[in-house]
Design a binder for these strands. Structure first.
Lengths: 203, 203, 203, 203
DNA sequence: CATGAATGAGCTTTCATTCAT
DNA sequence: CATGAATGAAAGCTCATTCAT
């Protein structure tokens, strides 16, 4: 594929991601995407078999980035609390690296998509949760999480809080939601309520 | 309006709510609604100016129920912890009273709706949050919430956890999410992590 | 259905039949039909679920007429040779009664139609042939057909000759093909070559 | 043109013929042909100006073969009845020599083709008929055909029977239609009904 | 000799909506 | 109170074809 082609495909990709994020999958027509990119319809179909395929490729790309960042920020750090920090600040990194794409990633959960794609998304989110849960178990064994903690609800609470921030930014247009300051504040909130710090441990 | 008319309108209303909840606002056509209700299209337009109006009336109805239950379950109880319990179990009550409608109420946040309607929804949700925040402030004054608590994040955490359960039920089809048992478990989780119980207070 | 509606539906029906006959099913677009009828596209879809359904209804109508005429002209007459005459002149009657439709009826065999429809047509034509074959058997028992005749080939020859005339008229635009005179000439040709007339019988 | 090029062109040719025969001219897209051949679209356009030209070249090729066989099987034999046999068994020879192409040749009459091409086909078929008619005239002079025979209808009957067999094979998928046995049976049928054999002559 | 990339024109179908009755 | 009939606008998608390389 020539450079120009690569460029066209990628422009379709990013433009569509933004439009989908803004208006939802169904509300964005192929024509709209093409107008925004500055191409004609058959050109889009030259690169993407159909609308659903376009969405699927975007979701896969989005998963890949998400996984990459999760590995880098959550799995790589040795210390449990660093992992937790990584979980929170991973979002920040996603935004900085793929600004146009993060909104898509954040919104995809929220809009009407073909049932088949939806089921795949659900499976993926469930797998992420399992992954995170086993991380909490490790934390528990290491003494960072109370021995009698309700891990299911802990996981749920952390996950949903994090998502809430993203929703606040992109649905409620609250730009303060994902600032460094706010993420830091969330980290402190979690530390205080859910995790046993070294201080408390030594005490 | 005669009784029969009232009935037709209400049948449209409930049927549309279910369909919207199942497939999303955009994916449900006027034709589908009419077929499900057993009327012709102009009849629907006799009762509802247009599709958006139908949605708006449904949202307003849904708000009214929500507010009613909030008042009954959260504002009415005197004791702070009873209010918190009410907040959690209010969902249960909604489901039991308006089973067809609760799914709509839960899903409305998740699907593509006209921008105008979306903005109204956002305003409404924000107002609910403020209302809830002031409730937490009261709790703080009464000693149920730690004096140095980060109320913003507390509110956010509680709200998003509650929503998470709803999503788990209706998006992930996890029927255990909103059982009495699970709600009770959430209440205990909250008590332990966020609120000062009488026991602790007396200590 | 009001008279006006009946009229619109029937206008679509006849216009489409003519267009299909002229250009083939695939080559005629919904837009073309609508323009010819003087309606907008959704109106056509109001009366016919989709293009294939339109074709199917036309085929069924065409079968019904064909059957009707077959019964009237072939099955009703008592004398064998009158039946044969009826077979030939039935075409003439079809044309006179449903002039716009006969061309469709004649051409349908010749153009690309959805596989499903094609199979149905084939079954139908086969059933017609069986019907005709049993008629020849009767003729044989009555002495009109030679005892050692190859009935399969006789049937095939008669059928294909008849179709040939139709093709000559509508594909080759040979207007003399289906004139009374020419049909009469064919009847005499058949009499001479295939059937035992009373004259010969008495001899 | 190099051998490889000749090969590519010929591969396009044969593949397209099969596809056209299977699905009809309109239903086969350039893309489909290219995929089946394993080339890209501009390559096809390098060899054939456009889709219609591709069809025309195929028709001409098909005519050439047809003519060749006609000359070999019908014109070459001296005896009239051998000519008639040749007419019938020429089809068999076509199939054996150009199996992929015969189906195309047989089907071309049946599907929607550009008007211009259609007219050319019609002219060609008419010329074939004239050729065949003059053959029958010769037969008449030689005493093989009755002096008072209706030559027009005789020609028509023979031609259409022959075509009928082909249709039975390729449209109705009746594999017995063009077997040696069946062709022989048709020959006997013709002999009995239409031609004066030496036996009868001597009588 | 072959191709990647692009396009204008067209397709069938569905949508929300209206109006006369 | 309800409906049959009609429509403008738009949807997703495919076609034959071309041009620069």
């Amino acid at each position: 594929m020539s450079t120009q082609a690569e460029d066209t495909k990628s422009r379709i990709f990013l433009t569509a991601a933004e439009l989908f994020a803004d208006y939802g999958f169904d509300k964005v027509s192929i024509r709209q995407i093409c107008e925004a990119v500055g191409i004609r319809k058959p050109t889009l179909y030259y690169y993407f078999k159909d609308k659903e395929t376009l969405l699927l490729e975007m979701i896969n790309f989005s998963k890949k980035i998400g996984d990459q960042i999760y590995e880098e920020q959550v799995e790589k750090p040795k210390d449990f609390l660093d992992k937790i920090r990584g979980l929170i600040f991973g979002r920040k990194i996603f935004i900085e690296k793929y600004p146009q794409f993060f909104r898509f990633h954040a919104m995809i959960h929220l809009f009407a998509i073909p049932e088949k794609v939806k089921q795949e998304m659900i499976q993926y989110v469930l797998s992420l949760m399992l992954r995170f849960r086993s991380l909490l178990e490790t934390g528990q064994k290491q003494g960072y999480v109370a021995a009698d903690e309700d891990l299911d609800f802990l996981m749920m609470t952390l996950t949903s809080s994090l998502n809430h921030l993203t929703i606040r930014k992109f649905v409620f247009h609250d730009d303060s939601a994902l600032t460094d300051e706010n993420l830091e504040r969330m980290y402190r909130f979690w530390l205080k309520h859910f995790f046993v710090t070294q201080d408390k441990q030594t005490t």
